[in-house]
Write a protein that binds this DNA or RNA. Structure first.
Lengths: 163, 163
DNA sequence: ACCAATTCGTTGAACTTGTCAATCATTACG
DNA sequence: CGTAATGATTGACAAGTTCAACGAATTGGT
């Protein structure tokens, strides 16, 4: 049930089927990378009309749950350079979705918190991303989707970033 | 058994643990992206000393199994712009790992085939990547690793790239 | 209480990737 | 035979990554 149907929908029916028979196409790393690309692509597509992308979406999410994370924490957690965090927050802040709060106890740190507007937008964005993801993972049953999540969770929890 | 041990190994023990409690950290898209990042990072690390990276590695792989793929096929299959394929093959060709063969039947197409040197290098590279991946997925049993692969395969086969 | 070292956020530069339009050679099609 | 389409290539530009340096603030040792 791949792309081998007579009624090709949009793009021209290119013959990559051959390459799907390669041994590479059966390797977990390859499948993992491609699955992630599919999910990200779908998510970015629905997030675009909300003025977000996967990056800003994730960042906004993390600021809506009363952790009030520091930019350094966000940098470590998302495995992004501190300077990238600066740019992303600049963007979100200029849209009035988050704000930087100086930590009074340690005035080097800025804690990032979502505004009301940011929280509202995130709600919409989560719904859109959920729907997109459900479509992308649609080939799996609910149980299988749970299994997948659990397996990925185990992998993630076992391995810190700095190895 | 995460990074919450008293004997922190290398990097400074930053407190991202808080953020691991966020709901984002339990979402499949997030876990998928991060697992992929871990696998890619590990692979690139061991591939670097062979003069490769995941990109060139995958490309080389696809040229060693008698499919003799076209650059267009590689572009579609790997979801890379045709111009990126040009650059990647230029790189591999300059190292004597692959060569472009004009298709006599249709002289617009160049079929990419690995040289003997390329095949030998790929063998080494596959071993290195296998080992690295085994380490990254080490928290999963063999059965679980199979499950993971099957689930990812299902997702991939269900969804073509142009959606 | 002081000074050195460290941390956080920020800026800017260099570099790699991603995206897209234009072009040339070649083939397909009316 | 001529127009359209395709594969590969080039070059321009935007977006993302990596890294070094810096100012402000804090920590720790002496």
């Amino acid at each position: 049930m791949k792309k081998t149907d007579a009624t090709a929908p949009a793009g021209p029916p290119r013959d990559t089927d051959e390459l799907w028979s390669s041994t590479l196409a059966a390797e977990t790393p390859f499948l993992l990378a491609r699955a992630r690309a599919l999910v990200v692509k779908g998510s970015n597509q629905v997030l675009r009309e909300l003025g977000l992308n996967v990056r800003t979406f994730s960042l906004l999410w993390l600021t809506t749950e009363d952790y009030s994370p520091t930019q350094r924490q966000l940098s470590d957690f998302l495995d992004l350079d501190p300077s990238q965090i600066v740019a992303l927050i600049d963007s979100l802040e200029s849209q009035g979705l988050v704000e930087r709060r100086l930590n009074p106890a340690d005035r080097r740190m800025r804690q990032i918190v979502a505004t009301t507007r940011g929280r509202k937008l995130l709600t919409k964005a989560r719904a859109a991303v959920d729907e997109s993801t459900a479509r992308t993972l649609g080939a799996l049953s609910a149980d299988q989707q749970d299994q997948l999540r659990e397996l990925l969770l185990a992998v993630n929890q076992a391995t810190p970033y700095y190895e």
